[in-house]
Design a protein around this nucleic acid. Structure first.
Lengths: 116, 116
DNA sequence: CAGTATCCAAAGGGATACTG
DNA sequence: CAGTATCCCTTTGGATACTG
């Protein structure tokens, strides 16, 4: 690989990272995806509990964006009262490795911060 | 593993994810880390170029936070005019796998969006 | 070059109350 | 239960100009 190709690759990589972050932006997206991912299927109120600090307004808004970007699927269940289930699409599930790695990194990070 | 342990694990995982995202928050952090990561050592003005759309004010602010959280090291080089080099700490470098995966995911995501 | 300072508009987001 | 609506304060962040 020539130097020039290498430069091109780096530019392409930066574009890809920024594309990814554009979809995953916001204070809560990754946490929401993780909540659904860890439980496979998850209801609105459960996600609200999993993601510490989020409000229903924000959860609703972020879920809507994730649905638009084809990362989650929303299913209304015919229960009384109504309940709504969220699942990851195949594309959303392809984030699983990243989520697992981030989880591990978070644990390490927490230990590092505590010990200093 | 009992059901109860499983629940505990999920809670722990959610905490870890939120710990991680607390440090990596903001519109630009991941892109900045990626820029430094891909080049090993990177100067302020180069990062400014890599991260499309960021302003010098934001770059300065975000780098300061990353430095406080022990993800990057800032080194002033004795050049004329002055230049400043940023590198990842070992802890910062431990994000490399995540960055690579995110980059790949971003490429796939872009293709998916374009094709629909 | 690598920032800092200031001004200001826009977006983010919490609290609370309300609806089907 | 799963949202929506409103109010309103806080944070983000762009543009521009300035400094060592």
């Amino acid at each position: 690989m020539t130097d020039n190709n290498c430069v091109q690759d780096n530019k392409g990589n930066m574009m890809a990272i920024q594309d990814a972050m554009y979809v995953l932006n916001g204070k809560w997206k990754i946490a929401i995806i993780s909540s659904i991912c860890y439980h496979n299927k998850r209801r609105f109120s459960d996600i609200l509990n999993d993601v510490v600090g989020i409000s229903n307004k924000m959860l609703s808004k972020e879920l809507k964006e994730l649905e638009i970007n084809k990362l989650v699927i929303r299913t209304v269940l015919d229960t009384q009262p109504i309940s709504v289930q969220y699942q990851l699409t195949e594309h959303g599930r392809s984030l699983q490795t990243i989520i697992n790695n981030l989880t591990d990194w978070g644990k390490t990070h927490r230990e590092m911060i505590i010990s200093t």
